[in-house]
């Protein structure tokens, strides 16, 4: 019986770790939140934990018998008819409960599938002309260190006049207005944002803003303004330079071809 219960216990512990442990860690990292594991991911986690633990327990014949034996016994042993009935009812009820949870109507908004970094188009229209993103380079990224610093500084002015209110004074995405937004403003210090993008991608995202997102970025709820209507092309490039200079990240570069 011990061999039968052990895998179940392991599964239960793992489940609790995911169900309570993960949000607990998250609530310590970010007080005020309770970051549960999203249902879709949780299902897969549990599926693989159950499968893995079952495999772990059945590789030897003894383990297999210990796990399967009691079940076979339950269903074949006439002495356990009552227990069998209870089990069948319980399992059936569990199935019914899961099914009910699955189909019952809810008032939740539909699940959102925003892709945070959707593929850019090959060319975009901004500032009254057309840019081919593949070849686009930051004209202010020059070898001359002094010139670079000067452009970045000018970009900083643009940043604090326009971007600061949402993206914050330290580029952490926590400007005065950040709490009002969902999705929250991008955190440029985080390695998951500008650090893994090319400057042309960043240019695209600034110039056309939330409304310029392709269909993978739906629903278009990003509050990012369409900046090419508000600032100049030059200012856009300078502010990009500033973002990288300030955060210390380097833009991703693509190899030259042909």
């Amino acid at each position: 019986m011990k061999a039968f219960l052990k895998p179940l216990l392991v599964i239960l512990v793992c489940y609790l770790l995911l169900k309570i442990g993960v949000p607990l860690v998250g609530s310590i990292l970010h007080p005020g939140t309770w970051p549960v594991i999203p249902t879709g991911v949780m299902k897969m986690y549990v599926f693989f934990i159950v499968t893995g633990v079952l495999l772990m327990s059945t590789f030897s014949d003894e383990g297999y018998d210990a796990l399967v034996g009691p079940i076979v016994d339950l269903y074949t042993n006439p002495a356990k008819a009552m227990l069998k009935l209870v089990t069948v009812v319980l399992v059936g009820a569990l199935g019914a409960y899961i099914t009910y949870q699955y189909v019952k109507p809810t008032f939740d908004a539909p699940v959102e599938l925003r892709s945070i970094h959707p593929a850019p188009p090959s060319s975009i229209k901004a500032f009254g002309k057309r840019f081919s993103l593949q070849k686009l380079k930051n004209p202010f990224r020059v070898e001359d260190k002094e010139q670079l610093a000067k452009s970045a500084e000018e970009g900083g002015i643009v940043y604090y006049k326009n971007c600061y209110f949402c993206h914050g004074d330290k580029m952490l995405g926590k400007g005065p207005f950040w709490e009002g937004f969902n999705p929250v403003p991008a955190n440029f210090v985080n390695i998951g944002t500008i650090a893994q993008l090319t400057e042309s991608f960043v240019f695209w995202r600034i110039a056309t803003g939330g409304p310029g997102l392709p269909s993978e970025g739906t629903p278009w709820i990003s509050a990012m303004p369409v900046w090419h209507e508000l600032i100049t092309e030059e200012e856009t490039w300078k502010v990009i330079l500033f973002l990288y200079e300030y955060t210390g990240h380097n833009p991703r570069v693509t190899k030259e071809h042909h």
Binding site: G40, K43, M44, V111, L113, S115, P121, P214, S215, E216
Partner: peptide, 12 residues
């Protein structure tokens, strides 16, 4: 079922 359905954009 397990993966959100994304319908790729039609060719431009």
């Amino acid at each position: 079922v397990g993966i959100p359905l994304i319908i790729p954009a039609a060719p431009p």
